[in-house]
Amino acid sequence: MTDYYRTIKEIIFALVIVFTFTTLVLLAAGAPPFEAYYHIFKGALGSWIRFSHVIKTWIPLTLCACGLLYTFRINLWNIGIEGQMMMGAVFTTACLRFGLESPVQPLFLWFSFAAGITGGAIWAFGAGFLKTKGGVNEIFAGLGLNFVAQGIILWLIFGPWKRPGVASMSGTEIFPHTMWLPHLTSIRLSPVGLGLVTLALVITALMLRYTRIGLYLKAIGNNPNAARIFGIKRAKYMLIAMLFAGGFAGLAGSLQVTGVYHRLLPAISSNYGYLALLVVMLANYNIWLAPFIAFFFACLNVGSIQLPMVLQLDSSLSGVIQGSLVLAALAVHAWRTFRKDNSHRGIE
């Protein structure tokens, strides 16, 4: 229980840093800070439509966060999650395009989830393979693959999958309604997306707490040398962790295509993968805090869209807030390890 309190304390601490800093920036820019916060709040939660936008952001963020819990557990920095999400979207689009001619289009909608998971997992396996067999740091491998994935998307949009007649940044042609994720018009949300996120959270919690895989990931992450003496294969479990991360990211990409945009866009991943890294770190790698942090981030993202219109503020304010959140998260992270080291020294 004390762990929860400590984590919540740290989050509050980070938020205080962020808001102090942002307030100073707003004051320097001559904007009224509290009004700006009010508009962010209103922009995110002021109406059902806006709230449904927040949830649409929250879904991929939380899915990616679930995936990252596996890789962080084994001490891997899966920054390639962004690319994994993109490849999930690419595979999903490919699957749907294949199904366009088919008489059972809705069936392909379901296949496309499997395709998305596969796409993300393949991309993650690539980074994991380079790490375990080639000794390439997973951060470099992941970043490299992110660029490759982005390149593939652009090539597809402007090449083989371009809209008849025009090829533009607005993406591929929109799929017919039969291939959209069914959503309830009353709340403008898809119960399937929400269901999948809930399922992902439950599965991840069970995996990490009750299975050997979860235990081994933690053991290797905390002490690879000792884990080896216990007879655990490090490379195997690194690949497993990457596959899970890639799978969840791929599913997030899949939902972006089927549930949000209904086509493939260059910005299909919307940096949610990178953002999810911060979500998980701020949540102190705790699965039950992660969805709440993700929700907060989603509110910020959606809420700040309003700012240029109502306050004539540049929309880059959201960038400032997110940037300072990055720094605050890193500060909290450093603070925690520093304190942990000190308490270790205390024992010896």
């Binding site: 050997r212 053991a219 905390n222 002490n223 000792a226 655990i232």
Partner: peptide, 28 residues
């Protein structure tokens, strides 16, 4: 603490690591 035991894991978790591998769930 460098090679023998795993910091951050409890005594029980160490006992779980010791068991023969193969089963999917840990019988806590």
């Amino acid at each position: 603490l460098e090679e023998g035991l795993i910091t951050g894991l409890s005594i029980t978790e160490h006992y779980a690591l010791k068991k023969k591998h193969g089963e999917f769930f840990v019988k806590w």
